[in-house]
Design a binder for these strands. Structure first.
Lengths: 402, 402
DNA sequence: ACTATTTCGTCATGGCGGTTTACAAATTAG
DNA sequence: CTAATTTGTAAACCGCCATGACGAAATAGT
């Protein structure tokens, strides 16, 4: 029963809808949902002027959305302006919810987000998953999922879809994990393991983090490069408000960009890949540390304490990141680079050398580098919100399933 | 009078059209044009089944396109199939034409392409333009343009737009050349210099070359990386059948991707940029040659003769290209890499080391590298065809101008 | 307090676009 | 020569949005 959510989450409302009158209607319904969702409570008239339709047309659209339970009438607004006050519309806090899940190296998490974007339920379970087989891990995830779904149902929500963030490469079918080095999973189709009766999507953790940044970050542009790191270093390329997936779904493998063509060998077969300089393992080694749990926290702690070895290791990692990012920036000309995931916590010590390297190597104004506010929350929120966006992108599709 | 052609040539038909009934109509007109253009002569019924409309609907669409002179009725087709034969429709060979122009380092060229994709007129003028001011060069280009337009008019064609390919960075407004090192142009707006009474677009030569590959190449995928080189090394990133422009329009600057972080200094401010290893100047120097004209031809000639110095220089350049492309391929996961422009002619000596490097550094199946058939013709054809595509993408817009 | 003005939401009407249904025309199969 | 099949078109219909008019509900002015 696991139908794919529309793959490669389209940027705008309803990209794939047919070019017929019904398709037009569905696109307009989506535009209403997006407008109300983005611009807060709005009257029908305000929505109409936002999207360029007449009040009459918006009325019929809103009626349909209210009947479907996707919009709610909040009642008359009381503005100081002249004229009859409008009736405020808001996205419904009941009805469909986006379920996000995350399989991390040392934790599992599930959450439910309503159409308003609020997290209404969540469950987390800590514990190292490194090297565990997929089945028991997913078994535990399902337990969390059950709890979240139960609580969501008590709040009047029903699941519109499930998106799972995984620390590894995911095939374009958005179902099978091709390679997850931290977990030691290879070519495992999560579809059969997660028998849910709503659409399932599996995606790369870094990609979901980037989407969270795009949708939840403040002032985030529509074209940027989102860099995050767990063990591998993943980048997500966001172009015109949409993710760049690549042919096989493997785009964004920043970790294996050559930084020093005759540097140390890398398991990927190359030499001097970024991961050999800025990967978690490499940085720990350079700092003279060893640990099996919360390695990022360890690094951040030592660096904050003033440990010169750790700081040097992070400086060098920043320089290597700067070299790799110079290539990426030259190739993509993004509006900015955002450091997310584990890198966000280490930013204070990475940024100076990273920016110095990037500035030095770029002619003209350098590409600004910023740090994500979301940090480690990004992937989970991005996953849940991807489902919410899918609902906003095609409201009738979910209304039919209600 | 120079209105911008729709910027950032959209992939599909009429992306920017409003979501109204007229917009729907225009999109369907575009779909008919695209189908007839791509699938050769087709009956109304065949078009209908291709795009999923009814025969009746297609009939009215075709009527309108024929009245506008964009489609032609070729007469009844004689198939061996049962049933009444359809009336073959073809894109008109008269009416609107796309005008392409190219400002090269040592030549100027202009051509006119009809909606069928045939080159109906062309004019070329050889002569070094290096270091000449924009005004006299454009003056000469206008002379060629006048000749091409005159011949096109004799053939019953009228210009639907002009696209100019320039060897340099072009701003997002598609009018001003920000930097063209070979010509020594900086921040020159070609709009005032080219006062034509139809839409004008200025674009990067490498980008137009990539578009030519996309539209004219056989078996070219919708996601690929097109690498070309004149003096600088430009790459064009094609994603889902559309060019990736970047925020400022500077995407694809492969020449300044770091290949050896502490290599020789580069005018861009960096060190060890690809251009320092695989740029024209660098290769000539490594080969111990010097020349002011047709430097690529010189290299190819010597390499073909068996000159070991030249071959070694090209091998090394290929290796450097391989390193830079490894980074790009990891980041973008394209379906293939295409070598175009000057690189196409040098491919026999570049490819082996390039592919070896790329294979070695990539885990799993390597990204296939191919060579463009179009070679130096690419940019000019791509420019002209970009105008033709714009007409196919929104037929009514040009019909109104007829 | 009362009227004029402004804005909101809705209804009836109409135009536009594609579908459905029906039919004549043109070909092949038997 | 008839039956079957396919094409192109015309007429009626339906869905969707625009237009214009109206009542409702607020403010502004006298």
């Amino acid at each position: 029963m696991t139908a794919p959510l529309h793959e490669a989450h389209p940027a705008g409302p309803g990209r794939a809808l047919p070019n017929t009158q019904q398709g037009m209607r569905r696109r307009n319904l989506a535009r209403v949902m997006h407008t109300v969702s983005a611009e807060g409570p709005l009257s029908r008239a305000a929505v109409a002027s936002h999207i360029g339709l007449t009040r009459a047309a918006v009325s019929t659209l809103v009626d349909e959305l209210i009947r479907s339970g996707l919009l709610e009438e909040l009642g008359p607004e009381r503005p100081g302006r002249v004229g009859r006050p409008g009736s405020a519309l808001a996205v419904s806090g009941h009805g469909p919810a986006g379920i996000g899940a995350e399989v991390g190296v040392d934790h599992l998490a599930v959450c439910a987000v309503d159409l308003r974007g609020e997290v209404r339920s969540r469950a987390v379970r800590h514990g190292a998953n490194r090297g565990r087989a997929p089945e028991p891990v997913i078994e535990e995830l399902i337990e969390l999922l059950r709890r979240v779904l139960a609580e969501a149902e008590r709040e009047g929500l029903w699941p519109a879809g499930l998106a799972v963030a995984v620390p590894g490469l995911v095939a374009r079918d958005a179902r099978t994990v091709v390679r997850a080095p931290n977990l030691d999973w290879r070519d495992t189709d999560l579809g059969p393991l997660l028998p849910v009766d709503f659409p399932l999507t599996v995606g790369n953790e870094a990609n979901f983090g980037a989407l969270a940044e795009l949708w939840l970050g403040e002032g985030t542009p529509r074209d940027f490069l989102h860099v995050s790191a767990e063990i591998g270093i993943g980048a997500a390329v966001v172009v015109d408000g949409g993710l760049l997936h690549g042919t096989r779904g493997f785009a964004g493998e920043l970790g294996h960009v050559p930084v020093q063509p005759d540097g140390p060998e890398c398991p990927c077969g190359g030499r001097g890949c970024l991961e050999q300089y800025a990967g978690e393992e490499a940085v720990l080694r350079a700092a003279g540390l060893e640990s099996d749990e919360d390695r990022v926290g360890l690094l951040a702690g030592r660096a904050a304490e003033g440990d010169e070895d750790v700081r040097r290791a992070l400086r060098d990692a920043g320089t290597a990141l700067g070299v790799a990012l110079t290539g990426a920036v030259n190739l993509l000309d993004p509006e900015s680079v955002v450091l997310g995931g584990a890198l966000a916590g280490l930013a204070p010590w990475l940024l100076p050398s990273l920016e110095a390297e990037l500035d030095r190597r770029t002619a003209g104004p350098a590409c600004p580098v910023s740090v994500s506010r979301l940090g480690p929350e990004g992937p989970l929120l991005g996953a849940a919100h991807s489902v919410v966006r899918a609902v906003l992108d095609d409201p009738v599709a979910v209304a039919e399933r209600a």
